[in-house]
Structures are given as structure tokens and as C-alpha cells.
Design a protein around this nucleic acid. Structure first.
Length: 264
DNA sequence: ACCTATGTTGATAC
DNA sequence: GGTATCAACATAGG
């Protein structure tokens, strides 16, 4: 669910609404979402401080806090969303209950003014952790340079889509954004990444940035022009050829059988 | 009822 | 080392 665009919107919700508010209480009692921390550990690091900055790389977020101490890492997993007071960002599912009284609130921070920041996450695949290790992530998909894109994507024999999904290679691309991007670029998902010429890699990067920016503006990866056609019986919105479905990089993959054909 | 599917990540095995 | 597979979680739908 949340890919780079949704996470960016969640980050901006924090940056726009949660900064410089004193933290007076923290519920970190979900030991699965907050692993490996014991209950109270995250609370002890946060109470009395304020969030000074909200940052993001790929699908990982972190909040820099006032004073000396750890940063607060947040990851939305597959179904998480961030709620600050009445504002929210992340997974696009509607919220039926307020964060405090919902059984799906997995972590929450109470501010001195009575407001609240919460992680709402039905599947509990999100994470809250102090000092998250983001060094293993590749460059952010919106920040990666042309040369680095050529190197990190184009030097693997793995299927092109698997390479785009590898967060160590490039951070932020999920299953839907990958399908949207490969369709826009008319590239076959299963084609070995190393088969692409530099000019094709450059074009792929350009298309990826455009698709990502569009998804941020429109509200999420589900707004991609190709995504609504990813369904049995769907046809390519450009050429009307039937869509194909396959598993690439372990993920369900849809593609135009005419424009994204690939025969090994 | 039971089985499958799901937008992520990580640990593990080859 | 790179790549593929499965498990972790919980819900929705056929």
C-alpha cells in the first residue's frame, strides 16, 4: 500500500502539523510494532521533547527531536497511515474511528496541547523504532542521479521490475508504482535490467520521477493511469491489447502484452 | 467454512 | 554476493 508517494504525504502531515509541540505521553505498548524496544523505552526517549523535523528516504520516515537523543523512526508497512489530530497521510483507506479509541492504533504520541500523532495500521506490518538504520537503503527514487540510476539499476541480471523493487538498489518504489512506471516506459518487467541501454535507463528514470511526482500530487500510487486496468480482462489503455499477468520479483505483475512483450 | 489475495520487509537458503 | 522464497501480520473477498 504505502509507497513513496503515500509516505511523502504522511511525512508532510507531520511536518505541517506536528512540529514544535511538546510531547507529554507516548503509547508504545505494542511490542510487535515497536520491537525490539520494551514498553516505555520509546516513551522515555520522547516525553518532554518536540519534533523538530520530519524526514523521509524511500518508504522510511524519521522524526528529529529536540535536544540530544535518538531519532524516531516510522515505517508504514503495507497498511499504515499517520494521523495528526484530524489530518492524515499514508494508506488511503478511510478511517472510521478516531486514533485514540481505535483498535488499529498501534502507536501514539500525546501533545501538551491535547492533540495527538498516531500510527493507524490494521495489519501491524508498520514499525516504530528509535534510531532506524536507513543506511542500507538505496538513494531515494526522487533524488537519485542519472549516473547512479544507470549503475544501480542497469548492472544487475535480475528482472528489471525486481531491480526497481529492491530497496537496497533504489528506495521508494513499490509494486504498483513499478507497474505504472514500466507501462509508461513500455518496458517488459521480466527483461534483465542489464539488457537496457544507457538511453533506456535514462528514459526509465525520467518516467519514474514523473510517475512518482504525479502520484504525490494526486494522492497515491492508486491514482496511476495504468493501475485501474490491473484487473482480469483489462486491456491496455493505449493500444487496447489484452493485459498479461505474471509473477516477477515475487510480486503480482500486470503489463501490456503488445507494448511490453518480452521473449527471452 | 475455507481458501486465496493483498500495495512491505526481513531472515533464510541456494 | 545476488537472487529467490517464505514468514511475519490482519483483513477482504470468492
Amino acid at each position: 500500500m504505502p509507497e513513496l508517494p503515500e509516505v511523502e504525504r504522511a511525512r508532510s502531515v507531520i511536518a505541517d502539523h506536528a512540529l514544535d509541540r511538546e510531547i507529554v505521553a507516548v503509547d508504545d505498548s505494542d511490542t510487535w510494532v515497536c520491537r525490539p524496544h520494551a514498553p516505555g523505552e520509546i516513551a522515555a526517549a520522547l516525553v518532554g521533547r518536540t519534533i523538530e523535523r520530519a524526514c523521509r528516504r524511500g518508504k522510511s520516515m524519521w522524526c528529529e527531536l529536540s535536544g540530544d537523543g535518538p531519532v524516531l523512526g516510522l515505517h508504514l508497512g503495507m497498511s499504515g497511515r499517520i494521523i495528526v489530530d484530524e489530518f492524515s497521510g499514508g494508506d488511503p483507506q478511510p478511517r472510521s474511528m478516531g486514533p485514540a479509541d481505535s483498535p488499529w492504533t498501534r502507536f501514539s504520541v500525546r501533545f501538551a496541547d491535547g492533540g495527538e500523532l498516531a500510527l493507524f495500521d490494521k495489519r501491524r506490518l508498520g514499525r516504530v523504532v528509535l534510531d532506524p538504520n536507513i543506511d542500507r537503503l538505496g538513494p531515494d527514487a526522487m533524488e537519485i542521479s542519472r549516473d547512479e540510476f544507470r549503475r544501480r539499476i542497469g548492472r544487475s541480471h535480475a528482472p528489471l521490475k525486481a531491480r526497481l523493487l529492491d530497496q537496497h538498489a533504489i528506495a521508494g518504489v513499490g509494486n504498483l508504482l513499478a507497474d505504472q512506471t514500466l507501462w509508461l516506459a513500455r518496458q517488459a518487467p521480466a527483461r534483465p535490467a542489464s539488457d537496457l541501454a544507457d538511453a533506456e535507463l535514462d528514459e526509465l528514470r525520467r518516467v519514474l520521477r514523473r510517475a512518482t511526482r504525479s502520484a504525490i500530487e494526486l494522492g497515491g500510487v492508486h491514482t496511476g493511469s495504468f493501475i485501474t486496468h490491473r484487473t482480469p480482462g483489462g486491456v491496455c489503455p493505449r493500444c487496447q491489447a489484452p493485459l498479461g499477468r505474471a509473477t516477477v520479483g515475487g510480486r503480482t505483475t500486470w503489463f501490456c502484452t503488445a507494448e511490453q512483450a518480452y521473449a527471452p
